[in-house]
């Protein structure tokens, strides 16, 4: 057991967990933030994507202990305040970029990450780039058409 401390969605958290606890289990089971999902066990579906120190990572493929001292943002913390929505959340709704909603939190976390990376690098996030960037996020419902539209729209809303 190790006491693992990190800041999650702006709030300092500290929980004693077994060393083999995955970050996603720390988030879901210990902190009861259940918006982060688990859709596979081979690090491919991306339903578990969160931001650790500003980078999108798969929380199912990282030990909680390895996030000691980190700043973690989950879907529950992506909006500026409780009554607000992040522009990318708005874009997913307005473009019907979700159906069952299970992959959606990971999609939104991956989307905001790709937008900031492209912006930082001064690159254009066009449709082929969005499709390529989504390699690690699987959706079974939407056929991706509206997710791609949503991310393009969200990117312009984030500008």
């Amino acid at each position: 057991m190790t006491k693992v401390s990190m800041t999650v969605n702006g709030k300092a958290r500290s929980v004693e967990v077994p060393d083999n606890t995955l970050l996603v289990d720390y988030i879901r089971e210990n902190l009861r933030l259940t918006g982060t999902h688990v859709g596979c066990d081979t690090s491919q579906c991306g339903a578990c994507v969160v931001h650790v120190d500003g980078q999108a990572v798969k929380s199912c493929t990282m030990l909680a202990a390895a996030a000691e001292g980190a700043e973690v943002t989950t879907i529950e913390g992506v909006a500026a305040s409780k009554d607000d929505l992040h522009p990318m959340q708005v874009a997913f709704k307005e473009n019907h970029g979700l159906q069952c909603g299970f992959c959606t939190p990971g999609m939104i976390m991956a989307a905001t990450d790709m937008v900031s990376r492209y912006k930082a690098a001064g690159k254009t996030l066009d449709e082929p780039a969005i499709r390529e960037e989504l390699e690690g996020n699987i959706c079974r419902c939407t056929g991706y058409h509206n997710i791609v539209k949503a991310i393009a729209d969200g990117a312009s809303k984030m500008a």
């Binding site: 929505l85 709704k93 909603g101 299970f102």
Partner: peptide
């Protein structure tokens, strides 16, 4: 019409079976 159910899904507040304790 935009979907009524979306708000809980885009905010991570959907309630799936594994979320229930």
């Amino acid at each position: 019409v935009l979907r009524k159910e979306d708000k809980r899904f885009i905010t991570g507040k959907g309630k799936y079976t594994d979320d229930i304790v």
